[in-house]
Nucleic acid binder design. Sequence first.
DNA 1: CGAAAGGTTGAAAAGCGTCAAGTTGCGTGG
DNA 2: CCACGCAACTTGACGCTTTTCAACCTTTCG
Lengths: 220, 220
Amino acid sequence: MLLSPGERDPWQEISTPVAYDHSGFEIFAEGEDAHFVYAIDEGAVRILRYADNGQRQILAFMMPGDLFGLPDNGTYANTAETISAVRLYRLPWHNLIQRMMDDPQLQLNLLVRVADDLHRAQRRIMMLGQQSTSQRLATLLLEFAGHPEFYNDRDGHLHLPITRVDVADYLGIARETAARAITRFERERLLRRIDPKTIQILDIAGLRDAELVRPKRGNQ
Amino acid sequence: MLLSPGERDPWQEISTPVAYDHSGFEIFAEGEDAHFVYAIDEGAVRILRYADNGQRQILAFMMPGDLFGLPDNGTYANTAETISAVRLYRLPWHNLIQRMMDDPQLQLNLLVRVADDLHRAQRRIMMLGQQSTSQRLATLLLEFAGHPEFYNDRDGHLHLPITRVDVADYLGIARETAARAITRFERERLLRRIDPKTIQILDIAGLRDAELVRPKRGNQ
DNA sequence: CGAAAGGTTGAAAAGCGTCAAGTTGCGTGG
DNA sequence: CCACGCAACTTGACGCTTTTCAACCTTTCG
């Protein structure tokens, strides 16, 4: 981050709460006029885009505390959909920009958040540019395991709020490859499938190793 | 961009000019304390990072008008190196932040630039997540061809200021694969090799097609 | 209860990485 | 100015991973 993340979120005070009680709701779509910025209070959201050929790519999963809805030339560049019940804070852009003109600290706060998003995007470039399928999957699992909302540290149960297609479209692989990578981890006793969306992590240190190991490109 | 890109660059007035006359110079390195932000006046720069296993990934090529050197928790997250003779504007961060506190417009200008960087990073995620080798190469060639500094529209000569390893590390492929992709384009009469770093583009419309075509993932 | 969506597995084929060899180009020093 | 040596580039062969195609199973929901 550019500066210390700093004091308590100014966002909550100046925004409108919005809630969606189900998964799969489209908050906004690629190409729409961008009127609002959103901050997540609770739940999770997927940010995605379709390529010209129709291929779907998930750019990021947004978690509590994250901000999304940045305009690109006045419109949204991506689509945002809920992947669980979600509580959001919503704020009109014109309103925010007005406030930022009077409050440089608020604007700096936004700048830091966008810069952080950029750094996350760069880590994704690293992943897609050189990690193997196993590494990518390990990264995703650990990412979700970092959020108590989805991971129970005590019994190791990880609840993935997404389908295999989501996993695949996030990791840049086919859904069959995603399934096989999970099978491989299961064979290696790193995890155990409870049901398709629930995974018990048996060896989290082993997962962290799997994320790092591999001297070369393009191996299993 | 968040708002209209707006008026003339305020950067040049408040910054120090710096020049490097050769390629391969390290402007700053990953992990160093981040003291300066840079804007490119002339020339080009590569932004790169090494993964834990030593694999090199080029995150972006920066061109005239671009800004780089954003700190991540006070240090640079990436390395920046010249890939041609370069003229830069350099500005200490503490200085810039001070100014931004007094000048919300300046800060908004920076915000828009960082947001633009984020959008570029997202396009790279799309590329690495789903484009084929040919598509990636076409994208890179068209990217450089968009800059008169490297592309002569009249005779179609494109001067790539980078090696094949750079091409490969940018596209997320092996250098042999990069060479073969160029060979393929040459066979298809889309381009012609003059020398390793000079390519004559014979069919730029065909290149743009090559960038888009392909209904599926992972084909040649 | 049946259809659809989501998930897993197998088999075959395609694409890419790796290894290896050979070529080209360029800078340094004689 | 030429020769040498090294780095960069290209191409072929091979093996491995992933994609694709297809079948089958499970779960969900109308």
